[in-house]
Simulated assay, not measured.
Amino acid sequence: MNGLEFTAQMVATVAWPIVVLVLLLVFRRWITATVSGATAGARIKRIKLGPVEAEFEEKAADAARSVAGALAENASPPPVDGPVPTFFADLIPLAALSPRDAIRMAFAHVRRALVQVYPQLADVGEDGLPDAVRELARRGLVKPGIADAVTRLRELAGLAAGPAEAVDARYALQYLTLAEGAIHAVLRAAPAREPGPDRWRGTYDGRFPIELSIQRRDGGQFTGLMRYPDPGPATTTRVQGEARDGVLTWRETAYITRGGREIDLRGRYEARISGDELTGSWYQGEREVAGFVMTAAEPG
């Protein structure tokens, strides 16, 4: 792959909003020349943006280089286990030092956004993601534009994995812009949840039945109850938890009814949603005690 091939693929990403492409095309030469000059230590005296002409004195250029240096020293890439980032400024230094790594990380965050909105994609790898998203689009669960964008981004990431000299910081910065736009599109397309509790039923440790009812949501937080019907009479506890990036984490805070099963209130449940299935484990501190599998149940 060469730079021309990568650029051609970038321009072929027709699913993006026209304003993004206009910005990239109109300001590309200026951005490239300005960044290259600043990196080489050149002093910016005068720049032109179409009909608009702006003059920067030497002190302004020095200040710009200082800001860029400060960003490079203090920025750190967005964590892979935190909230999905919607702004990639902290990836800019990585794009300058290792363009391919910046592209790879940006696509990883696009995948995280998709999993957050469409948990059924949690077990799909990056290579299989375009086909899986297109299948969701065929079923009417994903907008076709998002499926096209994910396909294009994956193609670009694959091209960027070629020879290191073929991809430089300019292409990485353009890719960050597109990936950032994709994340916004995915998160804004999140389907509204129907009001009412979520019900889950399954088996703990392969031995006895358990039930989870999410009765109230407030953003990513939720409250509800756990029910242990066997041995009878049923035991019920109050729970408080959090839903984030397709993962549910909750703790039992108190008994509602004491029945035939004693409950240790010091542990926590943690599980990942994949379609209609909730799979996870119960932990004491950091020790995994036993696993469980639950499936979505009808309200009632």
Rank of each mutant, 00 (worst) to 15 (best):
A63L: 14
A64M: 15
A64W: 15
A68S: 13
A70T: 12
A70N: 09
A72Q: 08
A75R: 04
S76C: 00
P77K: 08
P78Q: 05
P79Y: 05
G82W: 04
P83N: 12
V84W: 05
P85K: 01
P85E: 04
F87I: 12
F87Y: 15
F88D: 07
A89T: 12
D90P: 08
P93G: 09
L94S: 03
L94Y: 07
A95H: 01
A96W: 10
A96N: 02
A102Q: 00
R104W: 03
M105W: 03
A106V: 03
A106R: 06
V110W: 01
R111L: 01
R111F: 05
R112V: 04
R112G: 09
R112C: 05
L114W: 12
V115D: 07
Q120H: 05
L121M: 08
A122H: 12
G125I: 01
G125K: 00
L129F: 06
L129A: 07
P130L: 12
D131E: 14
A132D: 04
R134T: 05
E135F: 03
L136A: 03
A137W: 13
R138Y: 01
P144S: 02
G145F: 06
I146A: 13
I146M: 13
A147K: 06
L156M: 15
L156F: 09
L156E: 14
A157N: 07
A161P: 06
G162R: 08
E165M: 13
A166D: 15
R170A: 12
R170T: 13
L173P: 02
Y175Q: 10
Y175T: 11
L178G: 10
E180S: 15
